[in-house]
Amino acid sequence: MADLLLSYIALAMILFSIGFLGIISRKNIFIVYMSIELMLNAVNLIFVALGRYNESMEPQVMAMIIIAIAAAEAAVFLSLIVVLYRNKKSLNSDIFNVLKQKDTANG
């Protein structure tokens, strides 16, 4: 099992799907953030597995770069969460709907 590329890919795809499901189903913005992190990790797993398969170091470097990108995103995302919580006093992403299409004007 651990000999097969496909099993790693399958694991990665399961994690990727879980991440996607988290984004579509959860209102809590923390968990939305964590879901994105999980998806990035799933992609990392694919990279590393392919690197082992091709016996190349390149994908490991790519995975490393993706981790760094995730860190950068984390900084912005987490500070945005703080702003949102201060502004709206809530973590519920469903109530953030000022921009909803209305009959009246909003610019």
């Binding site: 990727f16 991440g19 996607f20 984004i23 913005i29 939305v32 994105i36 998806m39 990035l40 992609v43 995103e73 912005v76 995302f77 945005l80 702003v83 949102l84 502004n87 709206k88 992403s93 953030f96 709907n97 000022v98 921009l99 909003n106």
Partner: peptide, 21 residues
């Protein structure tokens, strides 16, 4: 301080990251 600004930022950040993945 303007609600719709951070809301737009949040929406773009979540969906943009999702697309980026």
């Amino acid at each position: 301080v303007i609600s719709k600004r951070i809301e737009a930022s949040y929406r773009y950040l979540v969906l943009g990251s999702l697309a980026g993945v």
